[in-house]
Each structure stands twice: as structure tokens, then as C-alpha cells.
Design a protein around this nucleic acid. Sequence first.
DNA 1: AATTCTAAAATGAATGTTCATTCTTTTTAG
DNA 2: CTAAAAAGAATGAACATTCATTTTAGAATT
Lengths: 190, 190
Amino acid sequence: MRTKSSQKREALLEATLNLVNNNGFHAAPMSKIAKLAGVSPATIYLYFKSKQDLINQLYINSKIAFTEEAFVNYHESMPVKKGFELIWFNIANYKIKQTCASSFLAQCETTPMIDSKIREEALEYFKPLLQLWERGQQEEIIKPIASHILYANAIYPLTFLLSSHKRGDFILDQEQLKIAFKAAWDSIKL
Amino acid sequence: MRTKSSQKREALLEATLNLVNNNGFHAAPMSKIAKLAGVSPATIYLYFKSKQDLINQLYINSKIAFTEEAFVNYHESMPVKKGFELIWFNIANYKIKQTCASSFLAQCETTPMIDSKIREEALEYFKPLLQLWERGQQEEIIKPIASHILYANAIYPLTFLLSSHKRGDFILDQEQLKIAFKAAWDSIKL
DNA sequence: AATTCTAAAATGAATGTTCATTCTTTTTAG
DNA sequence: CTAAAAAGAATGAACATTCATTTTAGAATT
């Protein structure tokens, strides 16, 4: 297995991302992935144990890139609402910029294709947001309810807006984003 | 092509639902679908043109069943909040009862496997909710914002809660449901 | 500096399997 | 007896993965 930072490895991950996105998991055969990445099918197996391994690693990779963006400029010393607003817009803008990566992730959340172990691993990276919410609850700014409900109402709606945006049903510009943020905040604020 | 209401047809749709749910689209071969439904693989083609057709029809079927449940006991003469509450709980309870069907639908929303024509067809059935929201906006009870944002914040969170529930990360009982409803309502009410 | 050598990297062509779909035959029911 | 319904076996394509071989890059030797 080759080093984790190789041009070919990256090209293979990106090729997989594009194929899965445009046609779904079922239409991303190794032969096409190889062709799109400009390598031989056999070469894939120098970098990944199997197709499942390739998918898992793409998922982890994408999730890490996503969460890193989510917390850019965030610091625990920020006021709760400011912090949430920053994180929320970080996520929204990342999703708008990186349509491919985020719709791949959306697909991963609902498909049984991703190993649950890998899924749990990715959850770790979201802790700062949960901690922010806890702080908000202590300060009586945020509703004292389960973090799952907070997430479902404050963050998850973005997934729907983005997929509508991608489909072209709805244009998610900065103005609509502000409106959506208010709805999100209203659902979790005390 | 056989009549739309045949025992075998129903059995095939149900078999497909179960297989897709437990293992994803990629692990639902026609041979397994046939075996689970207790028929020969060849028989599937008496009822469906192709695998794609089978999937499309299962999607439409499930979507219709879902939306029918959503509007049980609803009438346009109801007050806006009461009407929304009724529909919201109808949806939530359907999702809890029919875990299989609803997680299949969740998978369909994010995968490019479903033809967009079929997808549009399914949208039609949701009109009464959009009309309720319009009425609410006229009566200045509901925020004057795009229906996509309303849906994203008021209904879509249920999809996340249900998939957490199914995974076992979070128990969505009637008490949590009430809390989640309040969050949903707070996000769209004026 | 040119040549030789070597191990890693990469490849194209097999391999064996799985799958959707079809063909031919048999069963069923009226 | 017949036409519809169903079946099992067959077909051919697509696929993930592996195999045997070639290419590459750079170190070692002249």
C-alpha cells in the first residue's frame, strides 16, 4: 500500500467522487475510475485494498475536509450565537462551493454502503459544535434538548437546501442563506 | 405486463424494499429479489419491464403510501397551526411505523438512481402542505419565505431523526417527538 | 559521464464470478 | 384443449480482482 499523499491516490479519490456523484455508486466501476484518473485498473490496488476500501477512504477524506472547513475561524471564546452563526455559514458556504463533495457525503449518510465503524470515526470531528451547544444550554441561550434534535433542525436542513439547489429547483444565494439561517436559529434558540 | 394489483407484484415490491434497505441498491440482485418473493427470476419480467422500472415503481408506490398517510384526517378548513401539527405528526408516526419504507425513500432522495421524471411526479402529492403554508403566510402566522426553506426546516429534520433512530443512536419516542415538533414549528412560525 | 542493475511502480490482458435479461419448456386454470 | 402464467436453464455482458510482464527512476559500478 502506497503512501497516503500521492498524486495518483488523490486522482483516484477525485475520480471516484465525480463518478459516484454523477451516476451513483452502482455506476462507478473500477475500470471507469481508473480511466478517469488516467491509470490502469491494476494500479488502483496498489493504493487501496479493495473497492470498499476506496469508498471508505473517500468518505473519511471528504468528511475531514468538510469538518475542517466548518470550524475555520471558530474559537471557544466566542459568544454562543456568534460561534453558531460562524459555523453555520462555514458549513453552508462549503456546501455551496464543494457541491460534489457535499452531495457525495449526503449520499453516504443514507446508504448502507459505508461501514458503521468508519461512520463513527467521522462523528468525532464534530465535537466542537456539540460543545458549543452545551455551553449555549448552560447560558440558557439554547433549548435544553437532545443534540440530535438540535442538529436535525439547525444543520441538517442545509442538506435539503443544497440538494434542491443542485437539482436547480431553488437558488440558494446569500440572501436566501440569511433567511435559512434565521429559521435554523429560531428552531434552537431559547 | 400484468395488472397493477397482483399478489406477486406486491410480493416483488416488498422483497425489493427489504433487500435495498438492508444492503443498499448494489446488493439487491434480481435473483435475490425473486427468491425472497418466492418466484422465478423470469417471472419478475411479467410484472416489470426492467430492474429500473421495478425500482421506479417501488419509489412511486412508497411515495404515494407516504403522502396518503401524511394527510389523514387533514382538511383545508382546519386552523393553520392545527393542520400543520396534524400533518407533521402523521409524517413522524408513519416514519416510525414504516421504518423500511421511509429509509428506502430517504435513500432515493439522495441517489441519482431515480429518474428525475418519476421524482417530479411524486412531488405533486405534497401540494396540500404547500397550500397550507400559503394560507398560513396570508394569515401572517407563518414566515413569508420560500417553501423550500419551510420544508427544509419543518419536515426534513424528521429524516435525520429517523435515521438516527434506526441506527440506534437516539430513541425517538412520543416525548422527543413533541420536543422536535416545537423546534420545527419555531423555525417557521412568525 | 555512461552504463548497468534493481526494486518499485505501473500496466494490459486474463480470470472467474455475478448479474440482468431472454429462451424454451412446463404448469395451471378455466 | 388452450391460452395465460410461471419456471429453470441459458446467454452474454459487466465487473472486481489478479497475473505475468514491462516500464521507470535512480543508485551502483565502471
